[in-house]
Amino acid sequence: MGISQNLNYAYYPGCAAKQIQKEADWSARAVSEKLGVSLHDMHGATCCGAGNLQEHDPAAGLAINARIFSQAEEMGMDIVTICNTCLQTFSFANERLKAEPELLEKVNAILVKAGVRPYQGTIDVKHFIWVLIDDVGEETLKKHVVNPLNDLQVAPFYGCHGLRPNEVFNGRGGRLAGPQYMEKLIRIMGGESVDYYGKDKCCGFHYMLLNEKEFLHMSGGHSLEAKNHGAEVMVSPCTLCDMALGAYQSRSEKAMGTKIGLPEMNISQLIGMAYGLDQKTLGLGRLHTDPRPVMKSRGVQII
């Protein structure tokens, strides 16, 4: 289905990881280095459009995505991303470009006229957590755990755009009874995965600007519910969920008039801790609610 070999990937962190959520990018790179996963920068890759360009100008959205796919194809690699919205936007486009030869031809005609290499329709777009479980494998992931999480109670928050719609992810998305990427990763690191209703619901990020109050209640509600189910920290595989649930948590507390105090971080930061990476590399100081005290109390070393 894809073209990557020997754990080499065209790395597409997304706009949030380049700017506001840098710690997710640092951690994904550091964890990859430990695991022998090579993330290759895409110097010519623009913003994916985040579904917004696709709403405004669907043709431009497809062409901009095809240009990025073509770059990865030229590198001989599949794209891996740490942002759910980039994943979904790309998956929508890639699914159509692969399934509709006429459409691919028309989009390529535009690319060629603009001096861009046409897309052949061969690459796959993957989430970093899929690469870890499906390509690296549980055995290798386990080998690198030097600082196990000692049954730390971890609430996974998946994020919509890595789950739905089911069809565009070839079985890797919303079949919660199927591949359980987050739960597996948490257990491999020595933590315990906490179940709660909100774990496959919406963080509200794409709703933030237009419905701020509703957004703050939505994201804060999930954090509060996870905490009430015994979670000590929350992790997400998406930089936008990180922002909504972590960076905006104190804003939710204010809007809801209640204390939440649930540390939220990117899944790569949690893996990095279990792998004994230092807190500066993982950017733990950039988190609004500090996860270090509760992890220390579980006997997890903070390096």
């Binding site: 062409a63 459409l103 535009i110 006229k113 603009a114 001096g115």
Partner: peptide, 23 residues
């Protein structure tokens, strides 16, 4: 964060402006 080859993006927009694509 400036991306390489943004002239390509501008040319893609210009081409689509000239030949709108129904997708």
């Amino acid at each position: 964060h400036k991306v390489e080859g943004l002239d390509e993006v501008r040319r893609i927009y210009a081409e689509l402006e000239k030949n709108p694509l129904d997708v």
